[in-house]
Structure formats: structure tokens, C-alpha cells
Amino acid sequence: MARLLVRGFTISLDGYGAGPDQSLDNPLGIGGESLHQWLVGTRTFHSMVGKEGGETGIDDQLAAQSMAGVGAWILGRNMFSPIRGPWPDETWRGWWGENPPYHSPVYVLTHYKRPSLEMEGGTLFHFVTDGIHAALEQAQGAAGAQDIRLLGGASTIRQYLRCKLINELHLAVSPILLGRGEHLFEGIDLNALGYQCEKVTPSPKAVHYVLVRR
């Protein structure tokens, strides 16, 4: 069965996965973009956004690994859209433009129905209204022998953690303090849930931790 993985999810030193006051102008919240300095300069990220060049090294290796072997994705609604409540129409088509970097089925958790959305490059968004287990079941059917990447946000990851459904987490801890925002581990006892730190990899711009559920 396909594994459910969190890969390259970035948090601040004080544990926040996004800053406060997320909006269209600040999709990662105020200060949230500064979390991702380890990623945005890499060759892998440049390729994702259609740019040439980029840095190689540890961060790029881990960024590339985070994209490899993924057969399906699960996203919280905030990772797809800044819109809250019922969908006013189908105008909004995601943060990444017409050719998102997923290139496989993506299951978006939402309370409001919306038809599936086919994009360029093989990305197909499905909007799941009956909860995290239903999204995981559908993603497992689509992924086959490949892995499922749980992209976030923090509240979505917490839901899957509480149900002990995540097999492995790769967290990138950025050396900044946000002070407020969306805390990844609010109300979470990783030790009680059976997770342990298996690997630590420092880089010039972050420290990477791999947590595995026993």
C-alpha cells in the first residue's frame, strides 16, 4: 500500500508552518515566505517554476527527493486557494498557474463541492468533501505502488498525525522566529503517537529532520 509522507515541510524555530494573517497577498502569512529560503534558491525549485540554474548541494538533493516517487498528493484547502466558504465560481485554479508542479492526481480537502479540475502537465485536482480518510483512500487508489505526499498545511498534517496515518515526516527547520501563525505541533504529542527522529541533516539554510512512526 502507498505510504503517506510529509516531505520538505518547513517550520520556524518556534514551530510555525505559516505566519499569521494568510491572504491572497500573503499566502504563507506575514513573514511566512522567509521560511523557505532553503528551498527557493535550489535547482529543483527553479525547475518547478520554469527558471534556469539554481543552487545544488544538500538542500537541492532533499528538494529533489521530496518530488521523486510521488503518485498522488493531498492538500488542505488553504494550499489550493485563499477563498473561504462556498466556492463563488470556478475562476480560481490554484496558486501555480495552468501547469502546477504536481503532475499527478491531487486531492484537496474542502467542505464544499466542486467539479474536478484538469490542468496542464497531468495535474488533476479532485475536491474531497467527506474527510481525511476518504481523501487518503482515493489517493491510495491513484498512487498504486508510489507514495502519497501530504503537502499541508499545518492543520491538515495535524489531523493525519492524530490518526497515526503518516508514515514519515521530513521537516525542514528554518533558523527564523515567527512568533505567531499556524503551529505545526499544537496539541500534538509525537512521542505518544509513536514517532521518533531517524535522521538529522544540517545545511547552510536549515536543519532537516526525518521522523518515522514506529
Rank of each mutant, 00 (worst) to 15 (best):
T91F: 10
Q140Y: 09
A68C: 12
G131L: 06
P100W: 02
I166Y: 06
P115C: 08
N99D: 15
V108E: 02
G181C: 01
R84V: 09
R158V: 02
G153N: 09
A142W: 00
R114V: 04
I166C: 10
P82K: 05
P82V: 00
G181M: 00
T129F: 04
G131F: 06
R162A: 12
Q146V: 11
G131T: 01
G122M: 02
G141I: 03
R93E: 09
E168G: 10
K113W: 15
P105F: 04
H126N: 08
I166K: 07
R180H: 15
N78L: 14
R77V: 00
G71V: 03
P101E: 06
A72M: 08
L109D: 00
W73H: 10
R149Y: 13
I148W: 00
H103P: 11
A145C: 14
G85D: 00
M119A: 07
T123P: 05
R158C: 04
P82G: 05
L165T: 08
W73M: 03
E182S: 10
P101V: 01
S116I: 12
P82W: 01
G122H: 02
L117I: 10
E182M: 09
L151F: 15
G71A: 06
A72D: 05
V128S: 04
A139M: 01
G94N: 04
F127G: 00
Q65D: 14
R149F: 12
A64L: 11
W95H: 09
G153M: 10
Y102F: 12
W96I: 08
H133W: 15
E137W: 13
